[in-house]
Design a binder for these strands. Structure first.
Lengths: 127, 127
DNA sequence: CCTTCGTATCGATGATCTTCGATACATTGA
DNA sequence: TCAATGTATCGAAGATCATCGATACGAAGG
C-alpha cells in the first residue's frame, strides 16, 4: 500500500467516511470501481466555483471560512454555495465545524495529497 | 512563475495548443478565468472511462496504444472511445500520432505534473 | 416565545455530458 | 479503382449537474 486510509468525520452529517481513494494512474490498469472512486474525487474539483472556494478557504486568515463569507465574493446565491460546500465535504476535501450560527470550513490537505499521489509518475523498479 | 508553459501539438487537428494551466490552489484566491482553466483539466480526469484509458495507455507495452485496442477492454463502442480520446487530447493529457491506419496515443506526463503542482501545499515563506 | 441570521434541503429549470447508431474520412492492400 | 479497416464527426436520447427561489432547520439574543 502506498498511502494510508484517510478517515474524515463530517460534523454536519455525523457520518464517518472511510474513504480510500485514488489508486495511482501509473500503477497498472485501473479497475472499474477504483476508476469510479478516483473520478469522483476529480469531479469534486472539476468546477470553477469549487476550486475558488477551496482557494478562498485556504487563503482565509485562520485557514477557515464560513459559507456566508463566500457568497458575495463568488456572486452566487446561498443555496448554491451550500450545494458546492456539500460536494467538497462529501469528497473529503473540506470539513465543516459549527460554531454557533456559523459553520467554519477548512481544507483537508491530506486529501489533496492523496489525489496528487494518484497522478505521480511510475515508481521505477530497481534492477 | 512556478512552472513553464507546456506546448502540445495535436496531430489530428494540427492545432498548437499553448495551454497554461493549473495555478496552485494555495497560492491565493483563484481568479474566475484561472479557476475555469484548472476546472477543465480536472473535468478531463473526472470520468472513470478516461481514467482507465490513461492507465491502459500508460501500461501498454511501448507506452502507446491505439483506439482499437481500447474498445473491447472498456466494453464501449468505437465512437464513445473516440469521444473520450478527443477530450483527453484537447486537455493535453494524451497526444495521438497516426501510423498508417492507426493512431497511437501516449500519455503526456508533463501535463499530469502541472496538475499535481496545482494541488501542492503552500510554499512556506522563510522568516 | 419570538425574531434574527446562518445554514441545509427541496423542487424545478436549463445546460452539459455520456453513449451509440449512422455516416464520412483516411489509409492500406489487392 | 475498389474493398477493408481504423478513426473522426454528426445527431439524438437519456442521464447528470449547476443554479436558485422557497422553505425548513438551528442557534443566539431579546
Amino acid at each position: 500500500m502506498i498511502f494510508d486510509t484517510l478517515i474524515i468525520v463530517d460534523i454536519s452529517t455525523n457520518v464517518n467516511m472511510r474513504m480510500e481513494c485514488c489508486e495511482p494512474l501509473f500503477g497498472g490498469i485501473l479497475e472499474e470501481e477504483e476508476a469510479a472512486r478516483t473520478a469522483a474525487m476529480f469531479a469534486a474539483l472539476a468546477d470553477p466555483v469549487r476550486l475558488r472556494i477551496v482557494s478562498m478557504v485556504a487563503a482565509a486568515p485562520d485557514g477557515t471560512a464560513c459559507g456566508c463569507e463566500l457568497e458575495d465574493p463568488l456572486g452566487l446565491a446561498q443555496p448554491t454555495v451550500s450545494h458546492h460546500l456539500r460536494i467538497l465535504r462529501e469528497a473529503g476535501l473540506v470539513v465543516g465545524e459549527r460554531r454557533g450560527r456559523w459553520v467554519h470550513y477548512r481544507v483537508v490537505p491530506e486529501r489533496l495529497d492523496e489525489i496528487r499521489n494518484a497522478l505521480s509518475p511510475p515508481v521505477l523498479d530497481p534492477v
